[in-house]
Simulated assay, not measured.
Amino acid sequence: MYDEKCNSQIYHLDQGLVFRCHILYYKQISSNNLLCDKDRIIFNFHHVLFDFPSMKIFLHDLNQAYMTNQLPINHNTDLRYLDYALIEQQMPMTSANLSCDFLNYALTNNIELQHLALAAYYMFLFKLTNGERDICIGMNTHTRYKYEFKSIIGLYENLIPLRCQLDRDDSFRQLVEYVQEMATNCMKYSYFPLQHILAQHSDC
């Protein structure tokens, strides 16, 4: 049992051997094979099968099986973890291509990555809110606008609002250009405290 963490011969993924259980008796095995209060049960799962949220599910099912002498049955789904693993293997891995396309678009159109990401985020919020055209988000900025501040330790940050008014008829290229101009102009006032902005618009 003590070698299970490093012993690769104990678990066999190809055979489905990904779980082990041990009973530690405090003194000796009882004649009726029942556990006493000081006995312990140790469950070992292979990491390929078990994540942190699985712990709560396992303990819930174990408790229900112990109390009712029956295994719990989920009538809401017939899926198993093997189904998920199979779907995951068949899923196309496009994240690498997406990253390359993102970088290529920024380089080709001479756009900073932060502005391109910001435009994509506004587009995502536009879709998420079912077509909301007036969207305002907050962004942290560094406010070392004076040269003297650049060599002083401290929290020189400020939260500024970035308001974007989208036009349904604009192309994505036009949205990116608009966001780039808007974000650049807003950075000129990054030193202006957010609490002052909120105080000026307290009636909104």
Score class of each variant (00 low, 15 high):
3 D>L: 14
3 D>A: 11
3 D>P: 02
5 K>W: 06
5 K>C: 04
6 C>G: 12
8 S>F: 06
11 Y>S: 04
11 Y>P: 01
13 L>V: 11
13 L>H: 07
14 D>G: 02
14 D>H: 03
14 D>Q: 05
19 F>P: 02
20 R>K: 12
22 H>N: 08
25 Y>W: 12
25 Y>H: 14
27 K>E: 14
27 K>I: 05
27 K>L: 07
28 Q>W: 06
30 S>E: 13
31 S>E: 13
31 S>F: 02
34 L>G: 08
38 K>S: 08
39 D>M: 04
40 R>F: 05
41 I>L: 06
42 I>Q: 04
42 I>V: 15
45 F>L: 02
48 V>P: 00
48 V>S: 11
52 F>W: 08
53 P>G: 05
53 P>I: 07
57 I>G: 02
59 L>N: 01
63 N>E: 12
64 Q>A: 07
65 A>F: 08
66 Y>N: 13
74 N>I: 12
74 N>L: 15
79 L>E: 08
88 E>C: 09
95 S>K: 10
96 A>R: 10
103 L>F: 11
103 L>N: 13
104 N>Y: 10
105 Y>P: 01
106 A>S: 15
111 I>V: 13
112 E>M: 09
114 Q>Y: 15
122 Y>N: 04
126 F>M: 01
126 F>K: 09
131 G>E: 06
134 D>M: 04
136 C>R: 06
137 I>E: 04
137 I>C: 13
138 G>S: 10
138 G>F: 04
138 G>M: 09
143 T>E: 04
144 R>G: 01
144 R>A: 03
146 K>Y: 07
148 E>V: 13
148 E>M: 05
149 F>A: 05
152 I>T: 02
152 I>F: 02
153 I>C: 08
153 I>Y: 11
156 Y>I: 04
161 P>S: 14
162 L>S: 05
166 L>A: 06
166 L>E: 04
170 D>L: 07
170 D>G: 01
170 D>R: 03
173 R>L: 06
174 Q>R: 11
177 E>W: 02
177 E>S: 10
179 V>E: 07
179 V>I: 13
180 Q>D: 13
180 Q>I: 01
184 T>C: 02
189 Y>R: 13
192 F>T: 01
195 Q>G: 00
195 Q>E: 07
198 L>W: 00
198 L>E: 09
198 L>Q: 10
202 S>Y: 11
202 S>N: 06
